[in-house]
Structures are given as structure tokens and as C-alpha cells.
Design a protein around this nucleic acid. Structure first.
Lengths: 133, 133
DNA sequence: TGAAATCAGACTATTTCAGTCCTATTTCCT
DNA sequence: AGGAAATAGGACTGAAATAGTCTGATTTCA
């Protein structure tokens, strides 16, 4: 359960790479350096862009670069960008939309799960890309 | 990624039930109360027994009961009992068996992932069954 | 104008997970 | 003694999530 998806793994490696290089790097370059499947990495980079973590430049001299300093990009944000469900259970939705839970009437652990969810996010959010360097 | 498996969800509900009842309860009883698929719950209970969290009694007046007070059963232990991989990535194995990582030479985020793993476990481990009551 | 890059969607394959089924064993009660 | 009710455990199926691939379009620079 606690396993990070490959998308997140690859995303972290890519962000680390960008932070180290300090400038613009292409998906191909990062893929080669980390032995990451190119097409998959390309998707990951697009997601990171949509989340506003990195910027992209098209064309032959294009590539990707960080939009913020490594210290100000925390891992919770990265996970949010790259994973579908960021909640511990389906009961818990970030917007407080509790109708999503199908066991609403029988679920007896919703409140504590919310607490746990919060603590987990704190754990992940307390770490930044700077700590990957 | 951060989603708890059904096994863990059901396990927590069952442990909560046992803590509340204070005594012995059957899988059927717990399954009915929580609308949990009986066969699946039965498997979960077996796993919890193997981990040494609960005790079981066979036969017609049998059932399950907690082996410890709710305060002394933390959720990290429950997760460990009910989930296959308790590590954030395959690089990280609890026993320090780093050979499991197939990207050993190219993986550049192992050390920080270990740190994250530790923090996550602390989060989960800081909560006990008592907090589900 | 061509090469190298991002962008985007559809698709396939694999693995994981939830759930079911079947049988054996134990234990209590009549 | 025997039946009912419970745990124990293995094998199996189906569905869903994930990883990875393929194809084509667009942008930009030299």
C-alpha cells in the first residue's frame, strides 16, 4: 500500500536531475541518465508541467526546467501531480465530499482515517526536492 | 498510491470492533456489522492472528479477541500484518537487503527515500487502535 | 525545410487486488 | 456419537490499476 508509483519515482528522479543541472534538460537526457522509459517519463514531465512545478520549452532547443527553487517544492505537491488518488481511503476526499464513500452508513473509521491522512501528508510535505540533492 | 488496501481497512474495522466489544467476536458477526465480505474478512483475521495481534478460538463457540490493549496496538503493525509491501519503493527493504533494487546503479534517490519511509512509518505508528474508539 | 523537441491521445500488457469457492479441522452441544 | 458452527488454508477468477508502447501533431531552431 505504501508503495510509491513508478510515476512518482521517475518524477522525483527527474526533479532531482533538474535541480542538480540548474538549467534546462530534455526528457531524453533525463531518461538516458536514469534509465527511465522515455515515453513514460515524457508523460510524467507533462503532468509536472500542468501542476506548475516545472516549465517547458518546445522546439529543437527545448526541454524542462524548475519553476521554483528546490527548497520550495515539497514532495506532497509532486505526489499530487503524479498520482490519481491522494487519499488514504475513498471515504476521504480533499474537498470534503464525503458522498464518495459507499459505506457511509457502516464505515466506522472515517474520523480517525482523516487524522491519519493529515499526518501522512505532513510527513510527505515536510520533505523537499532540496533534500534529494 | 497513498491508498490503504481493503485488507487494511477491514482489519482496522475488525480491530475496532474487537476493542469495543472487549471480548470474543466471530468473523461472521464482524462481517455483518460492517458489511464486509465474509471470506475476505476471514483471511484478514488469519493474518492478524499470524502477526500476533489477535488470538483465535476454534470450534462452535470460537472467535477472535485482541491479544493486547487497544493502546498498545499501533497501526504500523496492522499494516505490516496485512500488506505485502510495506516499503515506499522496492529499493528499500526493511532488512537492509538492497540487492532487491534492480536500478541499484542508476537509482539516485535511495537515501532520501529511506528517510521518507521512516517518517511515514512514524506517522502511521503514532496512531493506535485506541484512537479508533 | 528538416531535425529535435514537447504535446496528446489511444492502446496493450502486466501486475495487483478484491472477492469467491471449496475442503479440512476443531470444538461445543444435544 | 454426531451435527452444527466456527477457524484454517489453498486455489481460483474477475476486475481494476499501473506500466509501458505506439502513433501522430505541433513547435522551434539552425
Amino acid at each position: 500500500m505504501l508503495r510509491l508509483s513508478k510515476r512518482v519515482e521517475y518524477g522525483l528522479m527527474a526533479l532531482q536531475y533538474l535541480a542538480k543541472s540548474g538549467g534546462v534538460a530534455t526528457a531524453r537526457e533525463i531518461s538516458d541518465a536514469g534509465q527511465i522509459p522515455y515515453e513514460l517519463l515524457a508523460k510524467v514531465m507533462q503532468s509536472l508541467k500542468h501542476e506548475g512545478i516545472i516549465d517547458s520549452y518546445q522546439g529543437v532547443r527545448g526541454g524542462y526546467a524548475l519553476l521554483f527553487s528546490p527548497e520550495s517544492i515539497n514532495l506532497a505537491r509532486v505526489v499530487r501531480a503524479l498520482d490519481e488518488h491522494t487519499t488514504i481511503t475513498e471515504c476521504i476526499s480533499p474537498s470534503g465530499d464525503h458522498d464518495a464513500c459507499q459505506m457511509l452508513h457502516t464505515c466506522t473509521i472515517k474520523a480517525p482515517m482523516n487524522k491519519l491522512q493529515q499526518r501522512m501528508e505532513e510527513s510527505i510535505g515536510s520533505m523537499t526536492i532540496a533534500e534529494l540533492l
